[in-house]
Write a protein that binds this DNA or RNA. Structure first.
Length: 259
DNA sequence: ATGGTCGATGGTCGA
């Protein structure tokens, strides 16, 4: 089983690149964030054309999350349980006996911004969701743009982010709390010491200078961890620039395991 | 020089 997560930064702008990537990589499941599409504006047909089913929780202009799979997608749920916000940041589905979530955690903007409080609360609701899910005996995977670099090795220069979001103690504690509930950071589990990034700012030639962060994560429970064979970032997919090539500012993260 | 680029938009805001 191959599962990928990818913040595409507008599926409208990226649809050809995403379809080409799926055709080439043939993953079983792709978890997408930031479709930036209204619910009914989704590209189901484009995915169906290449043999993929889809489920979308859209909003228009901002946010929007989706599950794409070669397998049947059932029991789709929008949002997190107990979540009182109306933004399209979480979708869950049952796919081939695996419960998956595609998540777009709020950015937070700055530590003194209300959006940062929202980010922390969203991560608390996610922990509740995970707690409930851990009581159910089934393979379980969270994938998405967490907008948190779990530890200093996940940032190109920790000192460059002092006092900023994505690296703050309160965020990192909440990511660590998900591990304490029984989920494993699949990339880190297979690559204990390596520094790899999944996101590079469009500005300032950050990709060229490899000034990035590892903020896109796949978190899995024990059945997945036990059969995990590899986790890689498709860094090539961040390459290119301008209107012709139009890369997302995030690269796909892909995990392979037996199920 | 405290920006730089994208993508939503059709003014600016968000990342």
């Amino acid at each position: 089983m191959k599962v990928a997560t990818w913040n595409v930064n507008s599926l409208k702008a990226r649809i050809n690149r995403v379809v080409d990537w799926l055709s080439l990589n043939q993953v079983d499941i792709l978890l997408i964030q930031e479709t930036k599409l209204k619910q009914d504006a989704f590209y189901s047909d484009r995915f169906a054309d290449i043999g993929y089913n889809s489920a979308h929780f859209g909003q228009g202009q901002w946010n929007g999350v989706a599950v794409i799979s070669r397998h049947e997608i059932t029991d789709v749920k929008f949002g997190l349980q107990g979540e009182t916000y109306d933004e399209a940041r979480a979708i869950s589905a049952l796919v081939g006996g695996l419960r998956v979530f595609s998540l777009y955690i709020p950015n937070g903007r700055s530590l003194d911004n209300d959006h940062y409080r929202y980010k922390l609360e969203f991560l608390d609701r996610l922990a509740d969701e995970v707690r409930a899910q851990m009581a159910i005996d089934e393979p379980f995977l969270l994938g998405g743009d967490f907008n948190v670099a779990p530890s200093p090795v996940d940032v190109y220069d920790e000192s460059a982010f002092e006092g900023m979001t994505h690296v703050s103690l309160d965020e990192r504690r909440r990511i660590a709390a998900l591990s304490e509930l029984g989920l494993s950071d699949l990339y880190r589990a297979t690559n204990p010491d390596e520094t790899v990034f999944t996101w590079w700012d469009y500005r300032n030639g950050a990709f060229h200078k490899n000034q990035g962060m590892r903020i896109d994560l796949l978190l899995g429970n024990q059945p997945i961890l036990k059969s995990l064979s590899s986790v890689v970032v498709d860094r090539d997919e961040r390459k290119g620039s301008g209107k012709e090539e139009r890369p997302s500012d995030h690269a796909p993260l892909i995990a392979t395991f037996e199920l």
